[in-house]
Design a protein around this nucleic acid. Sequence first.
DNA 1: GCCAACGTTGGC
DNA 2: GCCAACGTTGGC
Length: 153
Amino acid sequence: MKYWLMKSEPDAFSIDDLAARPGKREHWDGVRNYQARNFMREMKKGDTVLFYHSSCAKPGVVGVAKIVREAYPDSTALDPESDYYDPKSDPDNPRWFMVDIQFQKKYKQPVSLAAMKANPLLDGMRLLKRGNRLSVMPVEAEEFQIIRAMAAE
DNA sequence: GCCAACGTTGGC
DNA sequence: GCCAACGTTGGC
């Protein structure tokens, strides 16, 4: 059982949007970064995901989801109508993958990026490293517990 | 809107 | 295979 963090711009897709989906599930498509893709392929059913809001007034972890379907080819890469279309993608040798996640909970008290930076217990966390731009990354179990405590869960 | 950091592209 | 140019991310 591993822990992950996934970023989403709330203007595009927020944790409330996830909670409002049928079955509270959604495909996590559109990832077009190899490192992020590789992490998604490591994800196992039941793994925990910290849902992070980025590029917004108050970036931070806003809740928790879980992996309900392991990596499978991202169909948007093959769809010319999609914003995520990749003309170099080959249906016989998929390059991009997605997973399905399901809403678990929204934190009553979101854990802001500023709060995480200010917590010495989270020194070294991948998210906080300089220049980090990955939209999908692993989180250590200890880090997850610390964040959970900060959310007063 | 600015800009630092990083990934990707493409010419050579 | 190098590396400059470019595009994107994402905090501020």
